[in-house]
């Protein structure tokens, strides 16, 4: 992987760099912004915000619900036990199992979606600089085209004090 990036002292400077990259024709998908905390008051924080996680969580809940319904129904009919005169398939108590597994399905689906879509646990090298944890904000472009490098350098160099870095 190769990358061109710079570290900025605050959100305003980072925003100027992101705006510069956009003007240079770089799409949001190709811009990497890394910070030590979410910075929602800046426009750049909206990069990559689109997600289907809520829908996937609902789907996970549906899977949990279906699994619980099947588990309870199949178990009760396969091994019918007369308990306190209750019906063999008793939906009132089964609702408890169905509820719990529905919620468990939704929770697990959210976590799996987070891990997959946020790229957690991947071993391949990625653009990063430990200075981020000291409060700096990284703005850069991964795998830039050689032809676009002069424009990118110009966009990232918002101030003479900002030094550009490459990987």
């Amino acid at each position: 992987m190769k990358a061109l990036y710079a570290m900025y002292p605050d959100g305003h400077a980072a925003q100027r760099a992101v705006d510069g990259l956009r003007k240079a024709g770089v799409t949001d998908n190709d811009i990497t912004v890394i910070s030590a905390q979410p910075m929602e008051e800046f426009n750049f924080s909206h990069i990559g915000h689109k997600t289907y996680m809520w829908y996937i969580a609902c789907l996970g809940g549906l899977v949990g619900f279906a699994g619980a319904t099947g588990l309870a129904y199949i178990t009760e009919t396969s091994w019918p036990i007369n308990t306190g005169g209750m019906p063999i398939v008793s939906w009132w108590p089964n609702l408890i199992i169905m509820f719990e597994l529905t919620m468990l399905g939704a929770i697990l689906a959210s976590v799996i979606t987070l891990i997959v879509t946020a790229g957690l646990g991947r071993r391949r090298p990625a653009l990063y600089d430990p200075e981020v944890t000291d409060g700096k904000i990284l703005v850069g472009v991964e795998n830039p085209r050689d032809a676009s490098l002069p424009d990118l350098k110009k966009a990232l160099q918002i101030h003479p004090n900002i030094s550009l870095k490459t990987i």
């Binding site: 905390q37 979410p38 750049f44 987070l114 946020a118 790229g119 957690l120 071993r123």
Partner: peptide
């Protein structure tokens, strides 16, 4: 840390989750 970097995408996903 599971390779956490703190990209805007990761922050969004984490907060949504």
């Amino acid at each position: 840390a599971l390779g956490w970097r703190g990209t805007t995408k990761q922050w969004h996903r984490l907060e949504t989750a």
